[in-house]
């Protein structure tokens, strides 16, 4: 998992993603929670965009899953950690999936690498036949 030893968690909220309306709802929740961290507009926009990419990915490839939103801090930094968990088919070749332009569906193949670039920290774990977990952190000023 993502290194957790130095990270403090203040609040946790978990949401199920089952259709596109849930994605829209999730992005709005992230906007609300990020407000508590004093995140800059640019970082907020990046985080909301990464959230939308990852949640849509989860819908397209795994038919849905759950997303946990956590208000976190490390030292003086505060931010949000989002954990996307699905029980989908998993990703056979993670290295390939993290490359720009790679897509097994109709998408542009920007989902994973794009979300990684927009995040402060990015973690992915996938087991074929069991599912995929993606965790990202966006620091308010990072």
């Amino acid at each position: 998992m993502m290194p957790t030893s130095t990270i403090k968690v203040k609040a946790v909220e978990t949401n199920a993603i089952g259709d596109e309306q849930d994605v829209v709802h999730l992005v709005n929740l992230v906007r609300k929670q990020a407000g508590f961290t004093g995140m800059t507009l640019l970082n907020l926009t990046k985080l909301m965009t990464a959230t939308s990419e990852l949640a849509r990915n989860m819908l397209n490839y795994a038919g849905g899953g759950s997303v946990t939103i956590e208000l976190v801090s490390r030292g003086k930094q505060t931010g949000l950690r989002l954990t996307f968990i699905d029980q989908g088919p998993g990703i056979a070749n993670l290295e390939q999936a993290m490359q720009d332009g790679y897509s097994t569906s109709m998408g542009l193949g920007l989902g994973l690498p794009g979300a990684k670039r927009l995040s402060s920290e990015f973690y992915i774990e996938s087991i074929v036949g069991q599912g995929t977990t993606v965790a990202i952190i966006k620091w308010a000023n990072g």
């Binding site: 640019l42 907020l44 926009t45 990046k46 720009d100 920007l110 794009g114 670039r117 927009l118």
Partner: peptide, 14 residues
């Protein structure tokens, strides 16, 4: 397009 959206688009690679 809002400036933050434009910057994000470039980083996303869209």
């Amino acid at each position: 397009m809002q400036p933050a959206v434009a910057i994000t688009l470039v980083e996303l690679g869209l």
